[in-house]
Amino acid sequence: MQIEINIDDETPLFTQLIEQIKNAVLSGVISAGDPLPSIRQLANDLDLNNKTVAKAYKLLERDEVIITRGYRGTFIHENARKNSTKDLNGLVIQELTKTIETLKASGATDSEIRIAFADAMKTERN
């Protein structure tokens, strides 16, 4: 199965990769247990930085679409089909939009929200 990315597209490259792999799972082209190419192979084939592919794989692993089994390689997760429909990024945008609307309704300005968001992220990281 071939995947295709567009380097001029506004969508980040790692997001395009994630979408392509999820689409391949949803369309049944690849199924649970199927092996995936190594990060280096995919990065070289697409002429991308290894880190871009690694980031896509990391997020797919977090979403349980793929699973890494040490030196044996990366495989499609057994619940990949179900998990590919989850849109965590969409959920984040939806929740943040809701929160921003509530904050604006309370009278908070854009810069106050931005600074508070950055502070909250910093606190969460620490």
Binding site: M1, Q2, I3, N6, I7, D8, L36, P37, Q41, D45
Partner: peptide
């Protein structure tokens, strides 16, 4: 071309 393709199969 801005489009790049790859095989989703390990070699």
């Amino acid at each position: 071309t801005s489009k790049r393709t790859a095989d989703l199969k390990p070699r």
